[in-house]
Amino acid sequence: MPENKPDGITPSQTVGPYFAYGLTPNGKYDWNDAFNNNLVTSDTSGERIRVEGTVFDGDGVPVPDCMLEIWQADTQGRFSDPQDKRALPNTSLKGFGRIGTDAKGGYAFDTIKPGVVPDPDGKPQAPHIVLAVFARGMLLHNYSRIYFDGEAANASDPVLALVPAERRSTLIATRQPGGGNAVYRFDVHLQGDNETVFFDV
């Protein structure tokens, strides 16, 4: 082991433009995927959903070299991590997904609607997915949250309550019309008038 206590954390640096073949090969590069954008396994219970959208920069131009990572609870609000000391999830949902945006800045995740996770006081939070956004031109990733429209619990969510009312809609994925599995749209605006709320965590 190193002998000295570290004098601080290792600083972040950008993923740059060339992360795809290492982190999101997705069949385009000769390397196997550790993760992809489909979190659903055959025994995963819960409502199947798709979350999709486009990432935009401060000029409203789509960002084709962005990487999105999501982390979420299962349908009963439990995380697939031994640090979640509550009963183990009853599914093999791992709760983590990763995708690089396409040439038009688009992305999609196939997953399940997460359940209710308590806040530090034990109060319920509305269903949400934690999002981390990486890109060329981003020296440090941004954290955000994806909530779902039509959820009554949004009105009492302790984290949404911290967000100025006029910006809350940037955190709420909108249900798209149509049959079959629910599709939610969640665009990410890195900067500007409609800038997505990012959290200092």
């Binding site: 550790a34 993760f35 920069d57 401060g58 000029d59 131009v61 960002v63 982390w71 979420q72 609870a73 995380f79 697939s80 991590d81 031994p82 640090q83 979640d84 791992k94 709760g95 983590f96 996770v117 308590p118 806040d119 530090p120 939070q125 949400h128 934690v130 890109a135 060329r136 031109g137 981003m138 020296l139 941004n142 954290y143 949250r145 984290v159 911290l162 967000v163 910006r167 890195l190 900067q191 500007g192 800038e195 709320v197 990012f198 959290f199 200092d200 965590v201």
Partner: peptide, 25 residues
């Protein structure tokens, strides 16, 4: 970074179980 960094302040929040857990691979 000029067009890809936030122009509005980040919002501080307490860490909940969602932030304090993470993927295990």
């Amino acid at each position: 970074t000029v067009k890809r960094s936030p122009s509005k302040p980040l919002i501080p929040m307490r860490h909940t179980l969602s932030e304090l857990t993470g993927p295990v691979y």
